[in-house]
């Protein structure tokens, strides 16, 4: 998958789960994995840090 920020290659984890956070190894931007209609994974932007995110 291509990073929309830097065009780097983001590897798809072998055991990928929908909703998983993946990070571009080149620029460090994080994305959320989601399944397209054809069942294949793609990435989309996520909220970087929500005000109520955490433990």
């Amino acid at each position: 998958m291509k990073c929309p920020e830097c065009d780097g290659e983001i590897p798809l984890p072998k055991d990928a789960i929908e909703g998983e956070i993946v990070t571009c190894p080149d620029c460090g931007t994080s994305f959320e994995l989601y399944k397209k209609e054809d069942g294949r994974f793609d990435i989309r932007s996520i909220q970087v840090v929500g005000e109520d995110w955490g433990e």
């Binding site: 909703g19 998983e20 956070i21 994995l33 996520i46």
Partner: peptide, 29 residues
């Protein structure tokens, strides 16, 4: 139930699989 899958949620799902526990993942979104 989750909204984003961090390392923690992945390893919990793996642990369930190893222990033969039927763990269903539900994206709260």
């Amino acid at each position: 139930v989750y909204d984003y899958v961090r390392w923690e949620e992945k390893v919990i799902a793996d642990a369930a699989k190893k222990k033969g526990v039927d763990l269903k993942l539900v994206d709260s979104k």
